[in-house]
Design a protein around this nucleic acid. Structure first.
Lengths: 109, 109
DNA sequence: TGCACATCTCAGGGCTTGGTGAGATGTTCA
DNA sequence: TGAACATCTCACCAAGCCCTGAGATGTGCA
């Protein structure tokens, strides 16, 4: 019998699959116009839900849903307004934001 | 008649909706494990489709689909191997990568 | 206490998207 | 030229996600 093996593609064996888990999770959050806008707006200071909703032309309902995702990811936190506790003000969690930023940056190096 | 208007939430009027179009488009590309891994691997140098597929444990079929999206976005380009034109080598388009990076960075500031 | 308001939660419908299979294109080599 | 190989394209299906509507929670004020 012939010893010739099919000359199949010989991919380099030293290549390793990178771990992109964190970057993908962050990107999934940014990959929505409403959430990306919220994060960008909060970079300039805290906002309440109604401000975000009015500025973005979205229902407070919907904005609240997106804020919940950002909150679950630890990227933002909410606190009641000191003078009028009816309003919930959201602000960025700077440490988590820095980690998210770094994770994405690692994709591009 | 009373001049009292309902004390509805008074959002700041100086707030503007940011333009996050580019950042969202980039994030949508990064928000997939296969595409993010491809971009990360190409940061270390060109790879052919079969190398990417083997390393990531995906079908070449599927990898090719994802490469098409990255190509359509201008983030990577393909060229045939000089010695064996059967292999298509993909590499990053550094200028487009820089623009993508900057767009995402603008979200975080 | 009762009403108005700001916000939250959750289930359901519709759209988008990733993986797959099948077939087409282009390259190498016998 | 024909066979093997690397890659591409496209249609299909299933899974996931966004928006919406309805109802619940918490706060301020009369």
């Amino acid at each position: 019998m012939s010893t010739s093996l099919p000359l199949v593609c010989e991919p380099r064996l030293d290549l390793q699959a990178p771990d992109v888990t964190d970057a993908v999770a962050v990107a999934a959050l940014l990959a929505d116009r409403t959430r990306a806008s919220i994060l960008r707006m909060l970079a300039d200071g805290p906002c309440c839900v109604c401000e975000l909703a009015a500025t973005l032309g979205e229902r407070e309902n919907n904005v609240s849903n997106h804020l919940a995702k950002l909150r679950d990811a630890g990227l933002v936190r909410a606190s009641r307004h000191e003078a009028n506790a009816r309003f919930l003000y959201y602000e960025r969690e700077d440490e988590a934001i820095a980690r998210a930023r770094a994770a994405v940056e690692r994709i591009f190096r």
